[in-house]
């Protein structure tokens, strides 16, 4: 059985694509055969973040419409074994994603022996976002410590609970995970920013992890390498911990507490 994981948020620009790339890479690194699908039809970006933009020939919509088969459209990742990318179409609009079409592609991936299928949702609560969460078994709700992001996350949780297949068919509900991203321990400590515990209290779903705000993400996207592969950076370690927790391991939270810089550091710079 393939497990379908939808990475969603409601609000735009909070880190869904960054997270999809890193979660998919992390699962593949653990030996699971993993596909990551870009549902952001018309605004594809996952290919750039995964560094495979020049190898895109066919896309998700081509497969749905029968212009290409899945085998032709899936791109084998060059950094990580067991990992494949299904890019979004750049020229269509989101209505090209039909429910039957999406279901057909997901079923076929399952037949091909994929363990995990990660769906990178577009922003919003419209058709594209609903298609990305319709077949979810698990959902990673990406939230920034900021009022509009938290409210939109709550909206999208409501939609998961009403429009997913699992909800409609009355099966066991979609398993929800909170992933707080772009977190600044210093600003949270100083009361300028919601803390991750505030966010968890508000949204009332289990916390999968807290990803710190970091320049490493920009460096990663510049190079087309998922952030989780930026060795020994807090962002990569935080994503690796999140993967461990997702797979049922226990890892204490890291990079969430603010340590006051010592006097020397304050005098001579540093972060």
């Amino acid at each position: 059985m393939a497990t379908i994981i939808t990475v969603t948020s409601g609000k735009g620009g909070v880190g869904k694509t960054t997270t999809s790339a890193s979660i998919a890479t992390g699962l593949a690194m653990r030996g699971y055969k993993t596909a990551v699908i870009d549902f952001d039809v018309g605004l594809r970006n996952l290919d750039l973040i995964m560094g495979c933009e020049r190898r895109v020939v066919y896309d998700f919509v081509n497969v749905i419409q029968g212009d290409a088969n899945l085998h032709q459209a899936l791109i084998k990742d060059k950094n990580t074994e067991n990992l494949f990318v299904l890019p979004a179409s750049q020229t269509r609009d989101k209505d090209a994603l039909t429910e039957e079409g999406v279901e057909k592609v997901l079923k076929e991936l399952e037949h091909q022996g994929f363990d995990y299928i990660v769906c990178d949702s577009p922003a919003g609560i419209e058709h594209g976002a609903v298609m990305a969460l319709t077949f979810a078994d698990q959902a990673i709700v990406v939230t920034n410590p900021e009022v509009s992001s938290v409210r939109d996350s709550d909206r999208i949780l409501g939609i998961i609970q009403s429009k997913s297949r699992r909800a409609i068919e009355g099966r066991e509900p979609v398993k929800e995970h909170l992933l707080v991203t772009r977190y600044s321990p210093k600003r949270a400590h100083e009361g300028e920013m919601l803390t991750y515990t505030d966010i968890q209290e508000l949204l009332r779903i289990p916390l999968l992890g807290v990803i710190p705000e970091s320049e490493a993400v920009l460096h990663a996207s510049n190079q087309g390498i998922p952030a989780i592969l930026q060795k020994d950076t807090p962002v990569a370690d935080a994503y690796l911990d999140a993967i461990g927790r997702f797979l049922g391991e226990e890892h204490p939270l890291r990079f969430v507490d603010y340590e006051k810089p010592g006097l020397i550091k304050r005098l001579f710079g540093g972060k």
């Binding site: 900021e146 009022v147 938290v150 409210r151 709550d154 300028e192 920013m193 505030d198 508000l202």
Partner: peptide, 13 residues
């Protein structure tokens, strides 16, 4: 201002 944000979110959510 984070505490203000939290209170407002509690109400609206």
């Amino acid at each position: 201002t984070a505490s203000v944000a939290k209170e407002r979110l509690q109400l609206i959510i």
